[in-house]
């Protein structure tokens, strides 16, 4: 899906836990997530901390979208 969105001309960032799969699939902007069943969360944290963590990942995703890339890039 990420490749088809890119092909349509819309910049897209892939937020996912297993980044090697994302590389294989062909995503160009990749942001690593926390875990497979909760990519943008961590149930072990307090709700406020968890939301801060999610915000951090979303900010990374926005940073990826505003960064020019020439090739597949993982934004650690």
């Amino acid at each position: 899906m990420v490749k088809e969105i890119e092909r349509a001309g819309i910049p897209v960032v892939h937020v996912c836990t297993v980044t090697p799969i994302s590389m294989t699939v062909g995503a160009n902007r990749i942001v690593p997530a926390i875990a497979i069943p909760h990519p943008l969360g961590n149930p072990a944290l307090e709700p406020a901390e968890e939301k801060a963590l999610r915000r951090h990942i979303v900010e990374k995703a926005l940073e990826a979208l505003t960064t020019e890339v020439e090739d597949q890039t993982i934004f650690e």
Binding site: V2, E4, A8, H14, C16, L40
Partner: peptide, 20 residues
């Protein structure tokens, strides 16, 4: 994705966050 990307374009979406 081919299909909904057209809708995203038509709706003037500038960027997509795709989560997996």
């Amino acid at each position: 994705a081919e299909e909904f990307s057209k809708k995203l374009l038509a709706d003037g979406v500038d960027a997509v966050i795709l989560t997996s």
